[in-house]
Design a protein around this nucleic acid. Structure first.
Lengths: 346, 346
DNA sequence: GTTTATATTGTAAGCGCTTTCTTATACAAT
DNA sequence: ATTGTATAAGAAAGCGCTTACAATATAAAC
């Protein structure tokens, strides 16, 4: 144990030994104070805290992890998005995550899979002894089975799963789409088309379901001709919309499954010399900030991405700390934001 | 040392001992093979590699760090941006960083300062024994002096510094702005205004300098009335532009120091019943993807954000590995992207 | 004042790895 | 053969922390 002096080993940070020496207690006591576990007399606790302060001691996390075999860092796995929505979604999600993770003094480790076979990637991640739990955004990917073989908890964002032990935080895509279409119906529309998202992505499927469900509920026949096969890309939406407008009996309204696609759709309308909402009403999905910059301002379904990030972070931390049992399943409500891209039909 | 068997301690990952047992060598040899240092006979190297493979061994990084006192993770510090440009800049930068960091098998640790006094934040970061180097994006902040007291290398992104040991990767804001204004001059404009960015941010100052410099070079007097005090916010740009258009002698062109602000400026023009580029020509800065969605499409100065991220990552890794000496200073070229928001004056 | 239960400390054994120091082996030069 | 010089491998000492476990001090109960 170090002598009772401020001097520490040359060129190094002070260690728990130095603090123990300074405070005149054992390193075990110091550890107890730092981690706030076990019982330590008030007097000693103060002495330790003073010593910590005086030496500006910070525990060596590698040592702590090695000794305790516990970790609390949060890993974040996301697909490599390169489009505009991706960057919007990513930053919004990050806002929520960071506002929980950093105040809780956890580390956030970004884990992108850049060109590595998926299995290898997951094996490598899971063997990182310093990751306590994972937040996953999968996009079109499935949950890799390797995840299940590990003890490391994970929570999936933006997807729902039936398996009882899987944790997820999602958004009511179906209800959101349903509300959007119901709104159009309420405005007097009955010939309502949809440009749906990629159907290999859950949100894409669910938004399409919401669309059909809303029509069926209102007794409006679902027409194949009005269901356009989109993939969340603006370009595709532009093409589909152009085709749709050239059809013999174009719709009076379109529910577009993402704002990114709505951008393409609006452009298609304008390029045809037509007008939104005069000739055609449009509802998007996401509430990308650019929507309120468009003219007309886009009516859209807001999804609480930041809130989803926040909840995902809170959940994974509780799971890491074993304060919550696996099987956390939450679906957040969307909200229809009505702006200027829809008109009432007499 | 473990017996020569596949069995490992219950519920744990295999350790270097297990590999040594399996391969019939000492743990020192295993360590040498894993880290590819020292000399090991080919035969033994193979045996170790086989054992590693068979047991699916992954080294415990905490233990490795504790023992070696070396780290290779990259920390990324960014201010908390909440606006649209922030999210664009952040994701673009991240693309570059991730494409270097992950293939190099480093970890990327996100370090946001959420409500912590700056000094405390940096002290905490620097004491994290598992961070080898930092990439910093400072926005309006200065380099915290605490950084200099540590041995941990760092590279600043999006800012330039004279001090010889500071590493940075930046962008030629001055030249970019200069080119933009020269372009306007070349189109026949001489009454050219600017809405500049926040002057407590380096890029804001430099772009303003580029503007004045270009005018001076062309013998056009710099008029106080044509320099409008912006702050990178769209709203401010809208107000300044509105005021400018109401002036007795409005300019024929405006260099707006960011696309985000250009959005506000365009709106101001439209709201006045005027037209871009008919009544007023506009050049932005950044090449935010939304610029090509606007009508008219915005002429702007593209800055290579992704490239900056890539270089920053490459630099910090070399600095961590001591393959490069401190004092790396790079400034990347911008590029004028001419689109439809400027008209030629006869 | 004992005895017993409880709160408080300290001791010491690791956690899984790196690395120095020794020792053993191999090969070339004499 | 003998010596010298690399090379190759192992033993063992930590790295800085956590955490049984043992030891001691204190408080409560009789």
């Amino acid at each position: 144990m170090a002598k009772n002096t401020v001097k520490t080993r040359k060129g190094k940070f002070p260690s728990i030994d130095d603090v123990a020496g300074e405070a005149g207690v054992s390193i075990a006591t110091v550890s107890r104070v730092i981690n706030n576990i076990g019982s330590v007399k008030e007097r000693n606790k103060l002495k330790v805290l003073e010593a910590v302060d005086k030496l500006n001691f910070k525990p060596n996390i590698s040592a702590s992890r090695l000794a305790s075999n516990k970790v609390n860092s949060v890993g974040l796995i996301m697909p490599v998005y390169d489009d505009m929505f991706g960057s919007f979604f990513f930053t919004e999600l990050m806002k929520g995550i960071r506002d929980v993770v950093f105040p809780a003094r956890r580390d956030l480790i970004l884990l992108y899979n850049v060109n590595e076979p998926e299995d290898d990637f997951y094996r490598r991640i899971l063997n990182k002894t310093y990751i306590g739990g994972l937040i996953l955004e999968l996009g079109a990917l499935e949950i890799n089975p390797i995840l299940g073989k590990s003890d490391i908890p994970y929570v999936v964002v933006n997807g729902t799963y039936d398996e009882p032990r899987i944790n997820y935080i999602s958004v009511s895509n179906r209800t959101g789409a349903h509300d959007a279409v119901k709104y159009l119906i309420g405005m007097g529309h009955s010939r309502i088309a949809t440009i749906h998202g990629a159907l290999n992505i859950q949100s894409g499927r669910e938004r399409l379901e919401g669309y059909t469900q809303a029509l069926e509920e209102s007794g409006i026949p679902v027409s194949r001709d009005l269901i356009l096969d989109g993939n969340f890309f603006r370009k595709t939406a532009y093409e589909k919309m152009t085709a749709l407008l050239g059809a013999k009996e174009p719709p009076t309204a379109v529910f577009v499954a993402s704002d990114e696609m709505a951008l393409g759709a609006i452009k298609a309308v304008k390029d045809k010399g037509l007008n939104v909402p005069g000739d055609i009403s449009l509802v998007g999905f996401d509430d990308n900030p650019m929507c309120s910059e468009l003219s007309p301002k886009l009516t859209t379904v807001r999804q609480p991405i930041t809130e989803m990030g926040r909840l995902a972070a809170e959940t994974i931390i509780k799971l890491i700390d074993k304060e919550e049992k696996p099987g956390v399943k939450k679906t957040l409500a969307t909200e229809l934001i009505t702006r200027d891209s829809c008109r009432r039909i007499p």
